[in-house]
Design a protein around this nucleic acid. Structure first.
Lengths: 341, 341
DNA sequence: TAATCTGTTGCAAACGTTTGCCGAATGGAG
DNA sequence: CTCCATTCGGCAAACGTTTGCAACAGATTA
């Protein structure tokens, strides 16, 4: 029913191997023959069957992209960038969602393994051991997590956290609070460590609240606890939580940033849409997606397993303002630092 | 290198066909033999090669999902639902992004055709003719567009638009404005027609502004034009535009809903996060994703090409309020109508 | 003129499965 | 004891490609 290489061969009077070569090794076939074959192929509407090709070459020209939650606004820009980038290199992308479940994650990697040339594992919830395990079944690039000997793309959240803390210290805040994210998250640990160290180094008190599910509701739910600590500035694991907190505070009549400052992480689209607009540490998710794809596709060539760290940038908006120890005249400056694609 | 059916056969002392049947037709093999084969398969870590299976059966157990823009918050919940639903039926999902380009869309369908058992075309930008064309190369289910003879899943945006208009009329608005979406969009046409008819039937003036790119910036940019019309209530093509308008109005000192009411479409997550929270017509995107997958997978069986229309619901929040002709005591009631998954 | 090379094509095996067909073994009925 | 039905497993072809090898013609070189 579908038109195959054989049909094209018959119609153009050559052997199937010639047709095959016309597509996969054009330089090996006479230009005249080639154009003739190409013409009949076009006419018949021939499209190479990738499954058959994959069977014999061992390369599927597919990659897998596994994320914890497609609907989490952090991921779509990354998925989009990765997919577009992959397609430009003639690769198709399987996208799968684990619903934050490490077991599903493992199964998914295994199920996809035979069908792809490699997998992008984004913000994995598996243990390091499990990852080491599945890595033997299929080439892997991990995003948002650093594991020895594994190719990875991470965002420099430590530096981002330090910038955020410094910003808050500069504004005169002396009691900072970190609204912690999910337990298994590498990013969460990094932020907490870096922010804690920077805060204490700056002579400020540092409180941690959590862990939390990384959704806006969790931020809203934490409002009472946040206020109870007496902190005047909050750094949240991600923008979603920050926004939840932001709105819940205002609903209670607590003014942001006058009474309390809030900083998020990620710079999702929504952060510029809420009022006050959210000060946040921008993560280059699109760049991460592209970098991960490149890394995966190069992996075949050499065995080199690089680890790439992408720069994060503090985007100062309107949710942060002077604190109780503000130097005279301290004020937030509007800085727009995000790079266009 | 990878373990194949042959390795399992050798290791368990049976013919490869027996191993094959153990997996694809278990009832045809002796329970004893079966358990033995399964044991060695497990031990060797055998996983069936789907490409090989696809080659001979003609069924890939993959489906394609093509959307205009993964990063548009309207789509991720749909992608997520479709992927999860498909996986439960043992299908993997290719996701691809056309960047709103009809040409890319066509190429993508063609490129994916041989690799999938069918494609979900979400909010296509192609012409009806082009769709009819590619439909001959691969089974299709279209989401958010109605084409004669083509299986489709659409949201009942007409009814949604009428509810929204009625809500605004009840609140005493007599000049409504529709902030139009992109030109090629079927949904946009439906909303405009239904809203216009309902407004005029209610004795109200109805103005259309557009077309616009369906992003928040477009909503913000339209602010001046909106105010110039003198309309007291705005219905936007989608939430993103509504939110852009909402915030731009407030930034200009125009109070929402006191001076002007705003209604969106879709009910994306952000709509409940902005202040005032956005009154909007909720689209069952997740249900649509699931329905589309079901429809695609059933399509093989019979030739029946159903068309499913999903119910939309007006979610009244805080961006709508009494207009100039409000009956005494008119007020927005808080209604929560969205169905949990 | 013979030998060698180059460019082009055909031949056939291989990739990892599925599946129609056939034969062997088993068990019950007559 | 024979016959038939049933259950099980092996055989081999097929799916649509790629690719190493060989064949051939013509051109170049010695």
């Amino acid at each position: 029913m579908a038109v195959t290489i054989r049909d094209v061969a018959k119609a153009s009077g050559v052997h199937i191997s010639t047709v095959s070569r016309t597509f996969s090794a054009p330089h090996l076939v006479n230009p005249e023959t080639r154009t003739r074959v190409l013409a009949t192929a076009e006419e018949l509407g021939y499209r190479p069957n990738r499954a058959a090709r994959a069977l014999i070459t061992g390369r599927t020209h597919n990659i897998g992209l596994i994320v914890a939650d497609i609907a989490n606004p952090f991921f779509p820009p990354m998925i989009k960038a990765a997919e577009t980038h992959a397609r430009r290199r003639d690769y198709h992308v399987f996208v799968a969602d684990t619903d934050e479940d490490p077991v599903v994650e493992t199964d998914l990697v295994r199920a996809l393994a035979k069908q792809v040339d490699g997998i992008l594992l984004c913000s994995p919830r598996m243990s390091d051991d499990q990852i080491e395990q599945v890595r033997r079944e299929v080439p892997l690039v991990v995003v948002n997590r650093l594991i020895d000997g594994l190719p990875a793309v991470v965002m420099d959240v430590g530096t981002g956290a330090r910038s955020a803390v410094r910003h808050l210290l500069d504004l005169g805040h002396r009691h900072l609070l970190y609204l912690s994210g999910p337990r298994g998250s590498w990013t969460n640990r990094e932020i907490r460590k870096a922010a804690g160290a920077a805060a204490r180094a700056g002579g400020a008190e540092f409180t941690v609240l959590g862990p939390h599910v990384p959704v806006s509701q969790a931020g809203a739910d934490a409002t009472g606890a946040v206020l109870a600590t007496g902190a005047t500035a909050v750094l949240a694991y991600n923008d979603l939580m920050a926004i939840g907190l932001l709105q819940a505070l205002q609903d209670r009549g607590v003014a942001v940033p006058e009474q309390i400052s809030v900083v998020g992480f990620d710079d999702i689209a929504t952060s510029a849409l809420v009022r006050p607009t959210l000060t946040t540490v921008a993560n280059p998710t699109a760049a991460a997606g592209r970098a991960a794809v490149d890394m995966l596709l190069q992996q075949g060539d050499d065995g080199a397993t690089g680890q790439v760290t992408l720069r994060t940038d503090l985007v100062i908006r309107n949710s942060t303002g002077p604190g109780p120890y503000a130097p005279a005249g301290a004020t937030t400056e509007q800085v727009a630092v995000y790079a266009k694609e």
